[in-house]
Design a protein around this nucleic acid. Structure first.
Lengths: 69, 69
DNA sequence: TCCTTATGTAAAGCACGCTTTACATTTCTA
DNA sequence: TAGAAATGTAAAGCGTGCTTTACATAAGGA
């Protein structure tokens, strides 16, 4: 599962720590997700997408064919 | 985390077993998710939403304020 | 250069997602 | 009303999501 989190975060000038704090997760969790070491839980995926005002499918990509919009 | 899976599934005349098979998960996994006993992993949430041709946010609801569309 | 901030990563530990096996109950249908 | 299909649920076991603690490295500002 790939994701855009690093790009979205840095575009907003946020550190991993700041993003983690905003979402109530540790900076290591943000780092691991950005690095692709593991996928977030569904609740955390919701928080991340909502934080960036995007759909989950616009933040994460599971590599399968996507919907028309 | 609430979800519409039971309604979406039965609207299509599928058993839990049939849906599980289509997504390569066990019927117990479908049952547990429908019953709200646990949330699916993010990859399984992608599969479920894609199966029903919906966005993840249209299948699952984490109870927080949602986006404009 | 020194200090601070940011990042990368590792280990131990706990909680949960998903499996298989198994059994009970409900519901449909012949 | 009997049998089959569907559903509900439980337990054991494995992998992983996330935590805290800890240490190392990189980069920027005074």
């Amino acid at each position: 599962m790939n994701n855009n989190i690093r790009a979205l975060r840095t575009a907003r000038g946020l550190s991993q720590e700041a993003l983690g704090s905003a979402l109530n997760v540790s900076r290591q969790t943000i780092n691991a997700i950005e690095a692709g070491r593991y996928d977030p839980s569904l609740p955390l995926a919701f928080k991340l997408a909502r934080f960036f005002a995007l759909h989950i499918e616009d933040v994460f990509d599971d590599g399968e064919e996507t919907l028309g919009s």
